[in-house]
Design a protein around this nucleic acid. Structure first.
Lengths: 192, 192
DNA sequence: CGGGTCGGAATGAACATTCATTCCGAAAAC
DNA sequence: GTTTTCGGAATGAATGTTCATTCCGACCCG
């Protein structure tokens, strides 16, 4: 699944698709343009991916894989607040440093693609399991507010998503200090 | 600008466009379908709106007008916390009760339409002026954290936007109690 | 050579937009 | 009061464009 195991061509198609879709959205990313950017013929693209949908889902899978391996780690010997701050800071930084991964995901989850995906995947969404478990634990210890985990997640991820968008559009700039202040504010929102 | 001043036909086109775009997105809302839903001929639509873009901008203007008149009011004799909670609760409730307005706005601001719009409109975006001013005042009084207003806004509106999406997709349910808890958590995030 | 891989022209479906025509109500003519 | 005329409003079939997908000849490696 990772690029190591993949054909060069396949990888470059995935990358081109991600970048084009991140910048222009699904509608403004014609197959011909993706192929061109990837440096392959249109027909070739269809040798590697059954159709455009399959390609889109594959891009998504790749990004989730990277997120999972680079962001979602936890060390449960630390205090909860510390664990929270580390994970969210890492997530925030990853997305800032990989804007096209973020932009793609944003498009994906706000399109029929992502909605379908989320409906199919049972609640125990592996990727967010870690975050959910941390919330459940912290609630049981009375460290954070007694609110449904999904809502807690929204309280924390909502601002990240929103602010990232404006940052990437150049409406303002997120530096290291702002990131720390923001993540701490997120903690203040959920802590008891 | 309000529907009173408008032609019945124009209003029904705007409404049809909003609903279709809210549900299916811009790309999956062909002119023919909008016209059909509005109960007019396609050609008629083009009598009222120069092209699809103009129609989209007009829908946006209508929604902003409603938001402005029904949500963005303030009473500066109240304590800041109260003012904050009231405005955000009203905003949250309005969007829950007018899901298609919300869904349209979401699509709009995450598309080239909205990005263009925001770039053109100078910072003093009239609609959010009220919120921005409240933040500036509260900061000057040391009531809330000393963070740039745009970031404060993201901290507060991010969760609303995120949670609303999941609520409307039926992933969970936002009742009056959750709304109150959420808005209070938003306050905790920004208060000193 | 022959099996597999490429590329990009060709195809057909879906779409936004246009425009020649129809429709309708109100005014003019009688 | 009735018929005729008229002009703007409404219509949807026709047009041109853009796309996803297919197809087939060329190419490469064994």
């Amino acid at each position: 699944m990772t690029q190591d195991r993949m054909n060069k061509k396949q990888a470059s198609i995935l990358e081109a698709a991600r970048d084009l879709i991140a910048e222009n959205g699904f509608h403004a990313s014609p197959a011909a343009q993706i192929a061109e950017k990837a440096g392959v013929g249109v027909g070739t693209m269809y040798r590697y991916f059954e159709n455009k949908d399959a390609l889109v889902y594959e891009v998504h899978k790749e990004i989730e894989f990277r997120l999972h391996s680079q962001v979602f780690q936890d060390d449960d010997s630390l205090p909860v607040r510390e664990r929270f701050i580390r994970i969210y800071t890492r997530l925030f930084n990853y997305l800032i440093q990989h804007p096209n991964d973020y932009k793609f995901l944003e498009q994906f989850y706000n399109s029929p693609y992502g909605i379908k995906k989320r409906r199919e995947e049972p609640l125990g969404n592996t990727k967010y399991d870690l975050l959910k478990k941390l919330f459940v634990y912290a609630k049981s210890q009375q460290i954070i507010k007694d609110i449904h985990e999904d809502i807690l997640f929204g309280l924390c991820f909502g601002p990240i998503s929103f602010l990232l968008k404006d940052h990437l559009r150049g409406f303002f700039d997120l530096n290291e200090d702002s990131i720390q202040m923001i993540v701490e504010a997120l903690w203040d929102a959920i802590k008891r």
